[in-house]
């Protein structure tokens, strides 16, 4: 097995450029997300509350040649990425998704797990649709801005190359054509030197509304998998966007449909049938990393290490 120092010597060359890789390590397991069972969610939450556990997985992915990791603004993930970057010569590159509203607000109130705080945060999160929809005139934009600033401050410790607006906010803003939320986000992200993009669970609807608002983004992260899981409003609509998206690059997510399909078929689908540039795949163990990214290497061959220029 390659040592950490060798990995960094081999792969650090690309790290200064603003490029989109073919593969990145997804963060769902580190977030405690599973689509298979509550037991797995509990296990992920417990194990990945320690940065060292995240580092172990990310470190192994680096050794497999996956040099970019996806993250949320969570302390354990940021700490793990900082440790990895210190150990592996600045790698992995990071792609952040903001905001993680619960965590951001817990930080703002100065504690992470107090019951009273948790309740306040839950209340605010439940109110988010109303708050966001109220828009500028309802004095909500400052709240969104504050959350974004807090989160950007946290993830900037790991120098993200791309920062995506979380799907819930991005979908809502696009559905009601709330242009100012998207523009505010883009402006704030650009000020950090990163590329701003959008995450979505509704690619077809988002694309239609972005077009109507005459907004374009260089990167969109959206579900693509052979089961059509979360490809809304339909598989065909998502494939239509993928086939006619100009210079916008796509990062596929939910590639393994929540872990219920095998990597080989899923990767062939996203890279060969859909033709996305990049895929983010969460792995929770070294074995999963080897199986998933091993399959990717055999499918992509030399293309595994390809990077795409991101339109400014």
């Amino acid at each position: 097995m390659t040592s950490g120092q060798e990995v960094s010597a081999t792969l650090a060359a690309d790290s200064e450029r603003l490029l989109l890789p073919r593969l990145m390590v997804g963060s769902n397991p580190f977030q405690g997300v599973s689509y298979k069972s509550e037991a797995l969610r509990r296990e992920y939450r417990s194990r990945f509350s320690r940065p060292e556990a995240i580092l172990e997985v990310i470190g192994h992915c680096l050794e497999l040649g996956v040099t970019t990791a996806h993250c949320y603004a969570r302390q354990a993930q940021v700490e793990a990425l900082k440790m990895a970057q210190a150990r592996y010569g600045g790698l992995p590159d990071t792609v952040a998704v903001l905001p993680d509203v619960y965590e951001a607000m817990a930080r703002q109130t100065g504690e992470m797990a107090g019951t009273a705080t948790r309740e306040k945060i839950k209340f605010i999160v439940r109110s988010m649709p109303r708050l966001v929809s109220a828009g500028v005139s309802g004095n909500v934009l400052p709240l969104v801005e504050e959350v974004l600033e807090t989160e950007i401050g946290l993830v900037s410790q790991v120098h993200p190359r791309i920062i995506l607006l979380h799907g819930m906010l991005a979908d809502m803003a696009c559905a009601i054509r709330h242009r100012s939320v998207v523009e505010t986000f883009i402006k704030k992200v650009r000020a950090t030197g990163a590329v701003a993009g959008l995450a979505t669970h509704n690619l077809g609807v988002m694309w239609r509304n972005l077009t109507a608002m005459e907004l374009s983004v260089p990167v969109i992260m959206a579900p693509f998998n052979p089961l059509g899981f979360m490809m809304n409003p339909s598989v065909d609509a998502c494939l239509d966007v993928a086939g006619d998206r100009g210079s916008t690059l796509i990062i596929a997510k939910k590639v393994l449909a929540g872990g219920v399909i095998e990597p080989e078929g899923a990767l062939r689908y996203v890279f060969e049938e859909v033709g996305v540039e990049s895929a983010a795949i969460g792995v929770a163990t070294i074995e999963e990393a080897e199986k998933t990214f091993g399959a990717a290497r055999s499918i992509l061959g030399d293309d595994f290490d390809r990077r795409y220029e991101i339109a400014s």
Partner: peptide, 16 residues
């Protein structure tokens, strides 16, 4: 049967 295997489509998934 896991959820993603029987998920189906909707016109607009909002907050899951």
């Amino acid at each position: 049967l896991y959820g993603p295997e029987i998920w189906g489509r909707t016109g607009f998934d909002f907050t899951g």
